[in-house]
Structure formats: structure tokens, C-alpha cells
Nucleic acid binder design. Structure first.
Lengths: 160, 160
DNA sequence: TCAGTTATGTTACAACATAACAAAAAAGGA
DNA sequence: TCCTTTTTTGTTATGTTGTAACATAACTGA
């Protein structure tokens, strides 16, 4: 599936992010914004260290990884980026500019080429899953799933 | 939910593991078996380093973490242990001795106390989820889910 | 302005994981 | 058995990921 950048320009997404932060009463500082811009321009999920390096190249200024982690935490709290805990990488939310209500994103992680695609799953299926889990007394933090496997490209390559 | 050790003795599980490896034509060496035994006796998911230390205490012999990783990789390939990628820990499969067909295990990871419980979800729900995902061209490796949240104990503690 | 809060930088280190190569042990055929 | 090959395990060093603790800078609002 397309990353956010295919759907809207980076600038318009950043503008959406600014509005979202203003509404939430939090600050999208210049650095946070710049880091988000860097991530938006990636086609792959990025680790914090990879992002620090990319940020340096993009903005001609180095940035401590410690700060990158903090900014990513902030951006994740505002749902502007998703943290993929299974592979310790981050990806910009593909729906920052969407005004319509959308489903919780589900991520498909290719264990071979490490590409990440974002799909939506029927709300009903997730609800059933969530209800089954919560019935055991567990309290889900989110319904974001991270599923592993092979993308079609790697699957076909492996088969040959 | 109960770990494997509550359902069957460690010895009988190890015997099942031996049979499974013999059938698969792979070697469950003494060290691999000993490591599995160590993990079976834990009530919590363990990191490779924690396991190396526990192994040393259990068997009076130290073992390089490098070897622990390799053995865990082997055991995971044989589906004798599960790797919880989200928290970098390992847990013995609760179903090694089960001959009956069972559902794919789903893991509930408490983000507070880091306990892990294993639940089963209706096959139908998982099938629906899996079919939706595979329809996008992605090929799931397994239907094992790792869900994050708070266990009931931590949830109630946080609420107070 | 200035005091309080939030954000970022710096340093040091803990925890997790693997690369590269060496040694030991097991398997299998002559 | 003995030798060769393959597999497993050990050793050393280093890479990768993440955070603690504290300092400095920037912003906010009275």
C-alpha cells in the first residue's frame, strides 16, 4: 500500500499535523516537525538511529539519538507516527491528512526485505478479536496488529 | 493462563520434544534439551541473557549467550519455543505435548509488569483476519499475535 | 522580566544481537 | 576403525537498540 507521501504532499501533511497538534494543545516544535518531515519522505520503516542519520543528511545538522527517541515518542502519542515494536522501527501514519474516520492500522512486515505495508481490516473482525481477549481480563492498549510474513515479491522470489 | 509445566511434567514434555525432533530429522542435543528444560521451568518469558544466567544456575555450567541465541533459534524453528519479538523474550510453547489440533497461540503482554499470558482465539476470527490479509497479496508466516496492554492486576493497580 | 515548565543536548551505560573464526562433537562412508 | 564432512558449540569482538541522569536552552504566562 502507498505511504502517506503518495496520497498528499509532505507539506499538506505537515499542515494537517500542525492543526492536529494545535487542537490537542501540544507543541509541534520545529525539530519535531522536521523529524516528521524526514520520516514522511522515507518509503521504508526507519529505526531511531537511521532517522538520526537521515535527519543529519536532510537538514545538515546532527541530532542526538536520545532526542530522536523523545521526538518519536511525542509523535507516536499524537498518532502522527506508528511504532512497530516488533522490529523497532517507526513509520509515518498514512492517514494524517484523512479527515474521515478510519480503522486501526494493521501492519504487514516482510521478514525478508523488511518492507512494511499498512492495511485495514474489518472493524467487526477486530472487535471480535478484541472482545475475546478482553474477556480474559486483559486490557488491550490498542488494536494495532503487527503481522509477520513475506511480501508478495519476496514470496515469489523464495518459491523460485 | 498456565504455562506448559502446569499441564504436564517437564520430563514428559521433553519426551514429546524428542519425538518431534526425531520425526523432523533434527537433533535435540543435550544442551538444547537442557536449555528447553530451563525455559520450561520459568513462569515468565525470558530474554536470552536471562536464560544464560538461569541455565548456569540450573546446570552449574556457564553457557555463552551466543550459543543461547543459536539454541533458541533452533527451538523456535521446531516450534518448541516462541519468540516474542516485541519484547525480545522467549517462552516455551504451552502445547508441546498436545497431540490434539489446537489453535494458534496468541500472547498478551503486559506493558507494566511484563507478564505474558497465552490465550486462544476462535479459529474463525483468525481465519477471517488471515484471509483479509492474504487477499492483499501478503503471505503470513504464522497467525501468532502479540498483543500489548495491561494485565488485570496492573490495570486495577493503575486505576487506583 | 522572571519564574516555572517544557524541550533538547550531553554523557554514560545497560540490554540485546550478531559477525567471524576456532574448536569440538557427531554422522556416515571406505 | 579411521578419515572426511557436516553440524554444533565456544570465543572474541563489536554492532545495535534503548534509557538514566543530569545540564542547558527555549518557550509560556503572569
Amino acid at each position: 500500500m502507498a505511504r502517506a507521501s503518495r496520497r498528499a504532499t509532505v507539506d499538506s501533511i505537515l499542515a494537517s499535523a500542525e492543526r492536529a497538534c494545535a487542537t490537542a494543545g501540544v507543541r509541534l516544535t520545529a525539530k519535531r516537525r522536521a523529524l516528521l518531515a524526514t520520516l514522511l519522505q522515507q518509503s521504508q520503516a526507519m529505526s531511531a538511529y537511521e532517522l538520526a542519520e537521515q535527519y543529519r543528511q536532510d537538514h545538515g545538522e546532527s541530532i542526538p539519538t536520545m532526542s530522536v527517541y523523545r521526538m518519536l515518542d511525542f509523535l507516536a502519542e499524537q498518532n502522527l507516527v506508528h511504532k512497530l515494536g516488533a522490529i523497532n522501527k517507526y513509520i509515518a501514519c498514512a492517514h494524517i491528512s484523512c479527515s474521515h474516520r478510519h480503522e486501526t492500522p494493521q501492519f504487514l512486515i516482510c521478514d525478508d526485505c523488511h518492507s512494511v505495508s499498512e492495511v485495514e481490516v474489518e472493524a467487526e473482525t477486530l472487535d471480535t478479536l478484541g472482545q475475546g481477549v478482553e474477556a480474559t481480563g486483559f486490557h488491550l492498549r490498542s488494536r494495532q496488529l503487527e503481522l509477520h510474513g513475506l511480501c508478495d515479491h519476496c514470496y515469489k522470489r523464495a518459491a523460485s
